[in-house]
Design a protein around this nucleic acid. Structure first.
Lengths: 146, 146
DNA sequence: TGTTTACTTGCATTCATACGCAAAGACTAG
DNA sequence: CTAGTCTTTGCGTATGAATGCAAGTAAACA
C-alpha cells in the first residue's frame, strides 16, 4: 500500500525544480528526488523558516506594522509594547531570514520589509485569518495570562 | 515620541472588529481597544496559532498533501516518511486547531481540510514561498546533515 | 573627550514542543 | 471472545525558543 507519489500536491514540486539549487537527499521510498510527501524539500524548509518567524505574536505585529511603514526599533518597541532589547532580538532573527532590511539614520535604525513576496505572504495570511475569525466566533477561550 | 497609532496597518483592526466576539484587554498606551501595534489581538492570536502549526516540516507536508486528497494516518505517515504515532500526534494538534476534519471508515480514519480559508492560506503561502525560493537561490546552506 | 541616546548582544532562566517508545482504544474478521 | 489492523494517547527526554537583565557598540553632541 502506498499513497504518496504526486497523486496530490500540484506543481509544488515543479515550481521549485525550476528554481535551480537545492539540497540532495535520496528518497526513501518513491516520489521525485529531493521531494518528500509530494512537496519539495527546499520549499518546505524555506516555508517553515518563514512561518516560524511569523508564528510569534510580537514578530507578527512587527511585521504587519512594517508592511506600511519604515520604523525604528524604539518606535516598534513602543508600538508592540515590549522592551526594546527584546524587540531588537526579534528583529535580528527576522533580519537573518531576510524578512526585513535596515537603514541607519544617525543613531537610529529604521526597519522595513523589502521583499514583495514576503509582503504579499503576510497580507494574504492576515486576510485569510480575518475571514477565518469572522466565520468562527471564538472557539478556544479560557484564561491564561501570558 | 510616539509612532504607533493606526498610521500604518490598514484595516486589520476594522475587519476583526466586525467579526464580533473578542477578548478584552485595556490598551496600555493608545490605539483601538483590543489592539496592540495597530493589529487586532484576536487576529494575532489566531494567526499565530495557525502559523505555529504550519511552521513544522511534517505538518506542513501533511497539510499540503491534504489539500488535494483525503488520506488516512498510515497513508500520510508513509508519504511523509515518519512513524505513524508521531503523525497521529501532529494530526491531533491540527484537529484541535480545526485545520483538519476526520471521517472514520472502518478501522481507518481519513483526514481532510474542510476549511476553505485554510486551504487558500496554505496555497498562497506555498506559492509565495516558491517565488521567494525562485528569486533567491540558496542563502543559508552550511554543512550539517539534518 | 565625555555624555547621552539608540540599538545590539550575551547570558541564564524558564517554558514549549518534537520525538521515540510503549500501552491503550477502536473496529473488523474468524 | 480472540486475533489482528489502524489509530490514539501517555510519558520521559532532549532540544529549541522567548524573556529579562546586564553589558557592549555606535553615532551625535556638548
Amino acid at each position: 500500500m502506498n499513497a504518496s507519489k504526486q497523486s496530490g500536491a500540484p506543481r509544488l514540486t515543479r515550481a521549485a525544480t525550476v528554481g535551480g539549487a537545492r539540497s540532495e537527499q535520496p528518497a526513501a521510498s518513491l516520489g521525485a528526488p529531493g521531494t518528500v510527501g509530494g512537496v519539495d524539500d527546499d520549499v518546505v524548509t524555506l516555508a517553515v523558516e518563514v512561518l516560524r518567524i511569523l508564528a510569534d505574536p510580537t514578530r507578527l505585529r512587527i511585521t504587519v506594522l512594517l508592511l506600511t511603514a519604515e520604523l525604528s526599533v524604539s518606535e516598534l518597541a513602543d508600538a508592540v509594547q515590549r522592551p526594546v532589547a527584546g524587540v531588537s532580538q526579534h528583529l535580528a532573527k527576522m533580519r537573518l531570514a531576510h524578512l526585513v532590511a535596515t537603514r541607519r539614520e544617525g543613531t537610529t535604525v529604521r526597519y522595513r520589509i523589502d521583499d514583495e513576496h514576503i509582503r504579499q505572504l503576510v497580507l494574504d495570511t492576515t486576510r485569510h485569518v480575518e475571514h477565518l475569525l469572522f466565520d468562527r466566533p471564538a472557539h478556544h477561550e479560557m484564561g491564561g495570562p501570558r
